[in-house]
Simulated assay, not measured.
Amino acid sequence: MITDFARATVLVEDYETALAFYVDVLGFEVIFDDELDDGTRIVHVGLPEQSPAGLWLMAAEGSDRVGDQTGGHPSFVLYTDDCRVAHDRLVDEGVEITRGPVETADDVHLHFEDPYGNEVVLVELADGDA
């Protein structure tokens, strides 16, 4: 019945800051960025070659939920082929690493925050299969 995952919403305070992080730092690409007739901006980003799956960046417009959409739990998980290299690149970009990298029998993973405090988990699976 359900055939594909499309997008999850991440509340942001500022589109340009969010785009700079998700596109320039994490390597997402802009899939859609336009305004509706009522002036609402719609921004959809995703990883190359995985479109249409991605994140819908939405202005919080006065909401106090920015950075706390998930009640202190990670917002989402991303996979990488080399967690330690990704860690070093994130640190070089000024990203706050909140935990790790941690190596287990199954993976190497770390946690970091986006500019709004949303926690993201980055995982390198031991067998390479995401």
Rank of each mutant, 00 (worst) to 15 (best):
H111I: 05
M58H: 14
S63L: 08
E29T: 12
V23D: 08
H109T: 06
A8I: 13
T80P: 00
E113N: 11
V43W: 00
E124D: 06
V10N: 01
G117H: 07
T70R: 15
V43M: 00
V66G: 01
D107V: 03
G128Y: 02
A86Q: 01
L11F: 14
E96R: 14
V43T: 04
G62M: 03
L122M: 15
D88R: 14
M58A: 14
P74M: 09
Q69I: 03
Q50P: 04
F76L: 15
G117E: 05
L125Q: 13
A20V: 00
A53C: 12
A59I: 06
L11I: 12
R7D: 08
V12Y: 01
V120E: 05
T104M: 09
Y116G: 00
N118M: 10
R89W: 08
E119Y: 05
V45A: 07
R84S: 03
V123H: 04
V91P: 02
D81V: 11
L36R: 10
L47V: 13
D24L: 02
E13V: 03
F21M: 10
E96N: 12
P115D: 05
A130F: 13
V121W: 08
V77E: 15
P52D: 05
E93H: 14
F76Q: 08
I2M: 13
D34N: 14
T104V: 10
E96G: 01
Q69A: 12
V95A: 09
D64I: 03
E16G: 01
I42T: 11
Y116T: 02
D114F: 07
V10P: 00
M1R: 13
D129Q: 11
